[in-house]
Design a protein around this nucleic acid. Structure first.
Ligand code: ATP
Length: 733
DNA sequence: GAGGCAGTAATTTTT
DNA sequence: TTACTGCCTC
């Protein structure tokens, strides 16, 4: 193999270096993932490394699959096992093997965020809170914050958190949460990492065993590694193990999940002999795109300067748009797509990605695409595996594998509706608790004549349900029939298909999703990706948005986080508004948070290969209680604020009150020209915030100057939803 | 216990 | 705009 044909000089050096500890630091699109893939192949082919003694960590399952395939294609004639997987899958596998160390069976259940939330809800009701009390969110955040650092309740000294109002209760809830997880043989995502870390640190025998398994550990997207993951890796290293990491500190976008921005520096401190290799040629984007991205990220203070260049030529200009409304923003995107389709030979929809800060921003785009029949798929927000129907079915399946999984059982106990309501459930929960049984076990072992407060009818319904589940559990365990067949028949038997068919609006789509899930179960077992039904069920929870991506000819809509590591010829970034991107809530976190938003924008910009479209809108925002302004990122990227682009959009400049609203600072503002004919000087007005007032002046027929009883004179948009004319009854004189 | 309606409150990112 | 609660009726 002529390695130098596929790699530039720096890349070649990175791939072939004999150093034991290596870090490759490089900007977006410089071939980091490519280098890691070639390195893996190179180690096996030229260094004679044993494929099964290498461990490569990627950020998503999809990236793992691609790297696996890519590496194998570089190694013709070689087959066998490469260990390419995410941290979480690695830990799940580890714990499957070492389950007895935590007192769990191999077929433990992995709880996702939704399961966690349900569990917390059931716990807080025991404290007298309502199921939807805000304590639920607080508890999830509290637990998440500490658990991502690898901590457990016993490690907590509450005096360190005086600023958290309900800390005492929260800690109690957390303890109950841990007990509930234990009783259910369940682990949440943080447990996967934290438990493995603790085992490796505390159990020498196991540590040695695992240290002896790998000669080479390689990590992609290292900049988003957190300290627990880092510890974990460190404990997998013996003195001769090789460690190879690649990353771009400017692309750290998961600090809110514990990623440590300084992790690359930390590594250098820990391994002073580390060889650092810098790649600075970008192979992905045109100069125009790259320049904008470089200028933008240069505004971050807390960073190591890197100079990325490209030989691709300046390419096309960045296209900008400032739309009047969210709807016209979406229409503009559709128009541009149509234009591309006509003007670009060989264009296909799959070449296009539409990126945004938050999932809710897709709504107008979806509506417009639907009417214009532009094919699209949405990723991020709700993952396929997080959809209600998919989770329902998986919850049914989970009961076949783990009878202690109360969260799953509670989920499906009345789906489809069986007449089991909150009352019956509460009775069941308390009786099962007394006997120290899970809900399922309690029902299963409940004798006909045993005393119970369950209604006879409810008792019969539950018993029938559990007996059905038992029979399918036995069939799956016997392993004589194809699991996908049994699993499918089971879903029919519990009445779930009938339930979906009754959903007139979305029934068909939901049935299709379930069919797809069953197809995937079938394929995963057939291809040997997982060996047992139980293992598949365990891993389904960790599937990500990227894992769902197919190759259909459709436009891809996704959050920037989901787009990490991907590239597209044409990229639209929509909703590039102040307060949206950067997100106003994240800005509470101060400068650091703003810098992360900027990195996120940097990631977004650098997904584009040929042409980048940046767009914002002036729609009224209920959250900001103002019309949206273009994002500061435009200017920071060296671009002018975008001008209106569509033919209806002839904005005018208005003077508007700022937040504190004494007419203060003047802002450039475009507003929808609107008729305000029904306002007259002297009219009485009612404002949601300022209360009652009288109209003193009308400016440009659009702005009212109102003197409020309690707040003095304010200038208000006449068409603003918060202001209303008071019509006095009978006042027609 | 289920379903429908009206009024109110508030929109981050995910393994 | 939407999504979610609380309240009402069957
Ligand atoms: N030496 C090379 N010759 C040709 N193409 C290359 C070369 N190096 C990288 N590329 C191409 O550049 C693109 C970006 O590479 P890659 O995804 O590995 O970059 P990256 O640094 O991992 O990006 P990101 O920072 O966005 O994750 C890919 O399409 C890759 O095939």
């Amino acid at each position: 193999m002529e390695w130098e044909k596929h790699l530039n000089k720096q890349q070649l050096k990175a791939v072939t270096t004999p150093s034991q500890y290596v870090r490759v630091i490089a900007g977006a699109g410089s071939g980091k993932t490519r280098v890691l893939t070639y390195r893996l192949a190179y180690l096996i082919k030229e260094f004679g490394a044993a494929p099964w003694r290498t461990l490569a960590i990627t950020f998503t399952n999809k990236a793992a699959k691609e790297m696996q395939e890519r590496t194998m294609s570089l190694l013709p004639g070689n087959e066998g096992n490469l260990n390419v997987m995410t941290f979480h899958s690695f830990c799940a596998r580890f714990l499957r093997e070492e389950a007895q160390l935590i007192g769990y069976p191999r077929n433990f259940t992995i709880y996702d965020e939704d399961d966690q939330q349900r569990l917390i809800k059931s716990i807080v009701t025991r404290y007298g809170y309502k199921k939807n009390d805000k304590i639920v969110g607080e508890a999830l955040r509290f637990i998440g914050m500490l658990k991502t650092d690898g901590l457990y309740p016993d490690d907590i000294d509450l005096r360190k958190y005086p600023y958290i109002p309900d800390r005492k209760t929260l800690l109690e809830i957390w303890k109950d949460y841990e007990t509930a997880l234990n009783n259910a043989f369940a682990l949440d995502f943080d447990d996967l990492l934290a438990k493995v870390r603790l085992i490796l640190i505390n159990n020498e025998e196991t540590r040695t065993k695992w240290q002896n398994r790998f000669d080479h550990i390689l990590i992609d997207e290292f900049q988003d590694t957190n300290d627990v993951q880092y510890d974990l890796v460190e404990n997998l290293l013996k003195s001769t193990t090789n460690l190879y990491v690649v990353g771009d500190p400017d692309q750290t976008i998961y600090t809110w999940r514990g990623a440590n921005q300084d992790i690359l520096t930390k590594m250098e401190r820990q391994f002073p002999s580390v060889e650092t290799i810098i790649l600075n040629r970008n192979y992905r984007s045109t100069q125009n795109i790259l320049s904008a991205a470089n200028k933008l990220i240069a505004h971050n203070k807390d960073r190591i300067k890197k100079d990325l260049y490209t030989e691709a030529g300046s390419g096309e200009k960045i296209v900008q748009n400032n739309a009047l409304t969210d709807r016209s923003e979406a229409e503009w995107v559709a128009q541009e797509l149509m234009a591309l389709k006509i003007s670009e030979p060989g264009f296909s929809y799959r070449d296009v990605a539409i990126l945004y800060r938050s999932a809710y921003l897709t709504a107008p785009i979806e509506r417009v695409f639907m009417t214009k029949r532009i094919p699209y798929v949405v990723y991020g927000g709700i993952r396929f595996y997080a959809r209600a129907e998919v989770k329902d079915v998986v919850a049914y399946w989970r009961m076949l594998v783990n009878r202690k999984d109360d969260v799953a059982f509670t989920r499906i106990i009345n789906t489809p509706k069986r007449g089991i309501g909150d009352k019956t459930l509460a009775t069941l929960v308390s009786e099962a608790r007394k006997q120290e049984y899970s809900l399922y076990e309690y029902i299963l072992y409940l004798e006909d004549d045993a005393p119970t407060d369950l209604r006879p009818n409810a008792k019969r319904i539950l018993k029938d349900l559990v007996l059905i589940m038992e029979s399918y559990r036995e069939r799956i365990e016997a392993g004589l029939e194809a699991p996908s067949e049994v699993a499918n028949e089971y879903i029919e038997k519990v009445g779930y298909y009938k339930y979906l068919k009754e959903d007139e609006e979305r029934g068909e789509e939901r049935l299709e999703n379930v069919a797809q899930l069953i197809q995937e179960l079938y394929a995963a077992l057939k291809e040997g990706q997982f060996t047992t039904f139980a293992e598949y069920i365990q891993n389904v929870t960790m599937y990500t948005s990227q894992d769902e991506m197919g190759n259909e000819d459709r436009v891809t809509l996704m959050t920037v986080h989901v787009a990490k590591g991907l590239e597209y010829p044409y990229v639209f970034i929509i909703g590039l508004n102040d307060g949206v991107f950067p997100n106003h809530r994240s800005l509470d976190g101060g400068l650091e948070a703003l810098e992360e938003e900027r990195r996120l924008a940097y990631v977004a910009f650098t997904r584009a290969q040929k042409r980048l479209y940046l767009s914002c809108s002036n729609e009224y925002s209920y959250v900001l209680s103002n019309r949206k302004q273009p994002s500061p990122f435009f200017k920071e990227a060296g671009l002018e604020f975008p001008r209106f682009s569509s033919r209806f959009e002839f904005g005018r400049r208005y003077e508007l009150p700022t937040k504190e609203s004494d007419g203060g600072e003047t802002r450039d503002f475009f507003a929808e020209p609107s008729e305000v004919a029904d306002w007259q000087i002297g009219d009485l007005a009612q404002h949601r915030v300022f209360g009652r007032g009288i109209v003193k002046k009308i400016i440009d027929n659009t702005i009212l100057e109102i003197k409020f009883d309690d707040y003095g004179i304010k200038k208000i948009m006449a068409n603003h939803h918060a202001v209303e004319k008071i019509v006095l009854e009978g006042d027609l004189s």
